[in-house]
């Protein structure tokens, strides 16, 4: 955090290397969040770039009332919601595992690491990952964002409250409701436990 403050101060003094350092530090986190929010590598890439462009053009306004991380994720969340509203193209949020690999799409992007589930779970890793992504895509963006920020990005409730601009109790409710909805979508995979 201290390092972030220093980088921001340098950025505000037009130090380009500080801007590069911020990009290097946050690009993967922001991209990952947006990839899970949009379910689409192309949109995630485009929106991640947009996040840093917004940061670049607005760095003079930044007054360190929030952490840099909170600020960047807030921009990312707003951009993702704007993108949903504009495109209203929810089918793009779901990646069909049966669909052929598109040119430019890497096979590895649909891959998942080893599961921590019991070994007797008789479902391929790819299928399970696809089901989880589908279940996430069905969630309303607000619930999806909360659960991704906590379970995927590893943020605390307080940090999520800062990113979303909502009270702590609302954060807990959204995470709870998101998990209940995910549980309902993924029930066949839970019951194999």
């Amino acid at each position: 955090m201290h390092q972030d403050a220093e980088l921001i101060a340098r950025c505000q003094r037009a130090d380009a290397s500080a801007f590069d350092a911020i990009v290097a530090r946050y690009k993967t986190k922001i991209y990952h969040y947006l990839y899970r929010m949009t379910g689409n590598a192309e949109d995630a890439d485009d929106l991640t770039q947009e996040v840093f462009i917004r940061m670049y053009t607005n760095i003079g306004k930044f007054r360190a009332e929030a952490s840099l991380s909170t600020w960047l994720f807030r921009i990312a969340g707003n951009l993702a919601v704007d993108r949903f509203r504009r495109t209203k193209n929810s089918r793009r949020l779901v990646t069909s595992l049966d669909a052929p690999i598109q040119p430019g799409e890497e096979e590895a992007s649909r891959d998942v690491p080893d599961m921590s589930m019991a070994p007797e779970v008789l479902v391929s890793r790819r299928e399970l990952a696809g089901q989880i992504e589908s279940a996430l895509a069905k969630l309303p963006p607000k619930l999806r964002s909360a659960v991704i920020l906590f379970d995927v990005e590893g943020m605390s409730y307080d940090e999520i409250a800062g990113v979303e601009g909502i009270p702590l109790g609302t954060v807990k409710s959204r995470i709870f409701n998101a998990r209940v909805a995910l549980r309902d979508s993924l029930r066949p995979y839970l019951e194999t436990e």
Partner: peptide, 21 residues
């Protein structure tokens, strides 16, 4: 819900393209 959380956490991380910068 704990099992659901475990499932969500199995999702792999995604990386931006090499030429991002």
């Amino acid at each position: 819900l704990r099992m659901t959380q475990t499932l969500v956490r199995t999702l792999s991380s995604a990386e931006p393209r090499q030429d991002f910068e």
